[in-house]
Write a protein that binds this DNA or RNA. Structure first.
Lengths: 352, 352
DNA sequence: ATTAGCACTCGACAGTGACGAGTGCTAACA
DNA sequence: TGTTAGCACTCGTCACTGTCGAGTGCTAAT
């Protein structure tokens, strides 16, 4: 038995209808709503074949049929061939919305993840870049009060991280620049992830230049190093989690609760995203997901890059019965918009 | 008919039982679970009186009774007299948890609101201080690249705000301090909320010192002023919103959805908190709330201060059937812990 | 190969009666 | 006079039942 043209037509019609309604679809519905030119009886025979082939299941004997994960997979693969390059008409629009005037990366992510969930009506999330691979370019100390200091860590990619801290005794303002320079010199070129392992030797080296500084700063060095090495934590943004409450398949509070608990846990989201490969766009349907809590969900993910290197991922989680074509094109457009904005606002110094 | 001692005892027993179970409580239950030394029949008579007095209602004829808002109000007022000063045994503990090593106010709020919802199991939130009343102490420009600058606004209370921006042409590094000084001098002493109204005259004044600077910075001045005046936006932190999914009264997804939609909207939360007065601790029960969506909820709020001046509020929203004594003492302890941390880490310069 | 017809299946839904938790009333009692 | 046992009454819950209808599979006719 093979998937002839008519079977494909019927299968697509069933999937389309089920995506719309979340209700098991019967032969009559198909023959009425979609003009296939055949009677319900014929459709019934075809549906029976499709069930045998594993594309459909019946929830119970007298009900219509619903698509299986296999059906969605077929549907998506087919979609894929056609909309390989969906007309990203809204790309400019998207970029304008998520472009944050304040130039803060943080806001870009917050905006993006919000837009993503508003457009798709599903749960969406963004894994922010891990900074551990980033290289330190410069350190700048800024006095706030005579005992309170702001330490700015300027990375090669021009992202700025900061640590605030207090000293037990005041540092004269006029030594700030000297100390900043000393710190910059010693830390220049190191990756954030390296700091932790070499901090002891760094502290010792810095200790030898303490004529510039004073003892209270020296006391704080271990603490500062700790803070710096902590900056590499994985950061996951999410939004639209409670959208699933609007879906009929989550009418049951217990089921909704289970889903929400899963996606509210940033570390499980981060792990989830680690599994999906490094493809520009990946789709994982139902049982293809590793996690039990997402057995009835599909996951559409994309990557975003900085100078051609993958630095983070974005994704949308919805029911397997999701509007794939809309979600796929939204995710794709969003990843492209983020690429543009990030690469435009956080250039490496490629002049050097 | 008056609230004699026995009626009070029975009322409290009923409230306690209902807080525990969320199930209408009958005379038998009371006489069994709480040792009052009287028979169910007697309790029935008393309950009938309590109903007439408006403290109890029957959901339907053959059910037990449940407390009204009036009952909770009585209960809370009574509680109030006794636990005016609950032993804040966990204050130190709390302070340790929410004290953020990084000295970031943002993290303090994030930690606090998380702890608040974890302790109470209800939705909790914090209205962050509005900075519009804060006075500018100093401006510091920090170069990131030759065209990208970080503008640090250091406020009198030692909170630091930042704006990142790009210039169309490079500024020499060695002019940074001069420009910073000029900006500091002109903006010193202004409140953030004033900037917007006087920015035109400020720009003009700064224009006259442009010998220190260059034209591209001048072009950006209006933009900078806009950014600065935008810093005053109200910021609301919230956490534990989805905890209500665990409550039996929100077993209905539609009802849960309604509640969640309300509290996810930060602006409605902010408005809600504006209504409650400036008391150190305020309790608003059921119909006492302004908003329809909170008609079945109680709201416990407290304030936190900086140098004795109210700067923000914290709160917990739960069902009217909440464990008031626990929530009240948690909210109270939390507000005290926040007071301590904020006043300790963000001192005004009281030496001047 | 397609389709009309028909018997069959099974979930949804409304109606029914037993059950039980809880009440209010009354009469007896301390 | 306050308390309590007893009892009739109310009403929601639950299990059960029968009807309805959507949908199927099979068969025979086209």
């Amino acid at each position: 038995m093979s998937l002839d043209k008519r079977k494909v037509k019927i299968l697509k019609a069933i999937i389309a209808s089920y995506i719309d309604n979340a209700e098991a679809v019967g032969s009559r519905t198909i023959s009425k709503k979609y003009e296939l030119g055949v009677s319900p009886a014929t459709i019934r025979n075809e549906m029976s074949d499709l069930e045998e082939m594993g594309f459909l299941v019946q929830p119970h004997a007298s009900a219509g049929r619903i698509p299986t994960d296999k059906a969605y997979r077929y549907y998506v693969d087919d979609l894929w061939k056609k909309v390989q390059d969906p007309s990203n008409t809204n790309l400019d629009q998207l970029r304008n919305i998520i472009e944050d005037k304040s130039n803060e990366l943080d806001s870009v992510f917050k905006n993006s993840v919000r837009i993503l969930s508003q457009f798709t009506k599903y749960t969406s999330f963004i894994v922010a870049p891990q900074l551990k691979q980033s290289v330190i370019k410069r350190i700048q100390l800024v006095p706030i009060t005579d005992t309170k200091l702001l330490l700015l860590i300027i990375l090669q990619n021009n992202i700025v991280k900061q640590v605030t801290f207090r000293m037990s005794s005041p540092i004269p303002f006029d030594q700030m620049d000297k100390i900043s320079a000393a710190l910059s010199e010693k830390l220049y070129g190191y990756k954030l992830e390296d700091i932790d392992s070499i901090k002891d030797s760094l502290i010792e080296q810095l200790y030898h230049v303490r004529e510039h500084s004073n003892d209270s700063l020296m006391e704080l060095l271990p603490y500062l190093m700790d803070q710096i090495s902590k900056l590499e934590e994985i950061n996951v943004y999410s939004d639209g989690i409670t959208n699933i409450l609007d879906l009929p398949e989550y009418n049951d509070v217990v089921k909704a609760r289970e889903f929400i608990s899963f996606v509210e846990d940033k570390s499980s989201l981060a792990k989830l995203l680690q599994f999906v490969g490094e493809n520009d766009l990946a789709i994982s349907i139902g049982h293809e997901n590793q996690y039990e809590a997402l057995r009835d969900c599909s996951l559409i993910t994309a990557t975003y890059k900085f100078n051609g290197k993958l630095i983070g991922k974005i994704g949308v989680i919805g029911p397997t019965r999701m509007d794939y074509s809309k979600v796929i094109s939204t995710v794709k457009s969003m990843s492209e918009a983020m690429n543009e904005i990030i690469n435009q606002n956080f250039d490496d110094e490629n002049k050097e």
